[in-house]
Amino acid sequence: MAHEHKLEIFRGLIKFKSNTQKIWGVLVFLSLVTTVEVILGIYKPESMMGHFLGMKLLNWVFIILTLVKAYYITWDFMHMRDETSSLKRMVVWTAIFLILYLVFILLQEGGYIFDVYDKGYLKRDF
């Protein structure tokens, strides 16, 4: 067959016998991650309420788990794992660079405007 698939996930820790089996394996993994997210979201453990880099620890956990899910959707469902490394870099680095840049600028500015209302003489609660 012309369509060869790489059947290893977790850096070779798990190797599937066929592409179909790998798809179901990835589904199980994605569902597990989603379940963990929902449970954390409902119970909000007190231990994760500390702040780290301007955000709650729990929110960082959610963002990291989301990126993990995004990785497996792109790599296994969209078959990015089987593409050439230059195609991977073209798609992923472009998006990551531009998104980080935009998010940094907008969140920084949002925080600044909050401070102006909070500490300055402008009021929005009157």
């Binding site: 998104i99 998010v103 907008l106 969140l107 949002g110 925080g111 405007i113 909050f114």
Partner: peptide, 17 residues
């Protein structure tokens, strides 16, 4: 989509409290 979500983040940080 990230531009929309970043704009959402902007407004959220603006009204963080």
């Amino acid at each position: 989509f990230s531009a929309f979500l970043a704009a959402y983040g902007f407004s959220r940080f603006k009204f963080i409290d």
